[in-house]
Design a binder for these strands. Structure first.
Length: 282
DNA sequence: AAATAACTCAACCGCAGTAAA
DNA sequence: ATTTACTGCGGTTGAGTTATT
């Protein structure tokens, strides 16, 4: 597919619509009774815009049946519920919310609902409880209690580097993943005589996590979160009720480690990406 | 009061699917 | 069967606004 010509090439206007342009578009569609061909509409209606821009302006903003204003609690719940079943199928979701456009729902999801779920400890993609967040939350404590706390990490944990929030969030998650992998490898190293290395890893990490973490919020303990029954996702599958006991079989890091021979692992087995963590552990 | 950061959302982009030629 | 035109969709951007320092 060829990239559509730029403004300079076509002479077509881009950017925000003026009230005059809006009126031209409304007048044309009202006069015709329908938009007809979006491609030809701008020329006939006297608009210096591409058809695509006209269609978007009409469907997302000018259409008379569009509902404006804040999303209600019922709408929020419905979106969360539908998203858990349909994923990012915004147009499909919008068919269940009369007066709301797919774009509006998508924006609302990205700016409000996603954060809301994350704060509740729910993964906005899977709609399940996030075990990685528990681990992440425990690391500042873990690091501060360590005698050789890594100077690279603390600024990130407290975001004193002036980096964009998303970048710091991503960095934190990557740190957490790396730490988790190293912890698992190290714990399996120290338990080389154990007959059940996975159980040992679980024990080590559960002890770490159960030290001082507050219980996580879930759908079931938040008043304005979801219409889902406690302990279930919208898909009807069960998830764990709040507890600091984590089934490590569910974490991706554990999956990657469990496929290897844990008894045979030691620090020298860490790959290059883990090198900086060797110093931290030793 | 000014500067900066964070947030919001309209609009854009590119890809995919489909109908028509 | 292939090409072209068109529409719809989801992800992303960036200007404007609001909050914070």
């Amino acid at each position: 597919m060829v990239r559509s010509p730029s403004r300079e090439e076509t002479g077509l206007k881009k950017g925000p619509w003026t009230p005059e342009e809006d009126q031209k578009l409304i007048d044309y569609i009202q006069k015709q009774g329908s938009h007809g061909s979006w491609r030809h509409l701008p020329r006939i209606a006297g608009l210096n815009r591409c058809g695509k821009s006209c269609r978007l302006r009409w469907t997302n903003y000018l259409r008379p049946d569009i509902k404006r204003g804040k999303f209600s609690e019922e709408e929020e719940k419905l979106i969360i519920n539908l998203h858990s079943m349909l994923g990012n199928k915004w147009s499909l979701i919008s068919t269940k919310l009369p007066g709301r456009t797919d774009n509006e729902i998508k924006n609302y999801w990205n700016t409000h609902l996603k954060k809301k779920l994350l704060l509740m400890g729910i993964d906005p993609v899977t709609h399940r409880r996030r075990t990685d967040l528990e681990l992440l939350a425990s690391f500042p404590k873990l690091l501060s209690s360590s005698s050789n706390s890594c100077s690279l990490i603390n600024p990130l944990m407290e975001n004193t580097l002036g980096l964009p929030t998303d970048t710091v969030q991503l960095a934190r998650i990557q740190i957490m993943q790396a730490l988790l992998q190293v912890l698992l490898k190290a714990s399996s190293f120290s338990s080389s005589s154990s007959s059940n290395p996975n159980a040992y890893s679980n024990l080590v990490l559960n002890n770490l996590l159960s030290s001082s973490l507050p219980p996580l919020q879930t759908f079931s303990d938040s008043s304005n979160s979801s219409s889902l029954p406690p302990g279930t996702s919208a898909l009807g599958e069960s998830f764990q009720t709040p507890t600091n006991q984590i089934d490590l079989n569910e974490t991706s890091a554990t999956k990657s480690v469990s496929t290897r021979s844990l008894d045979a692992l030691n620090l020298s087995d860490l790959d290059d990406s883990d090198l900086s963590w060797k110093d931290f552990l030793e």
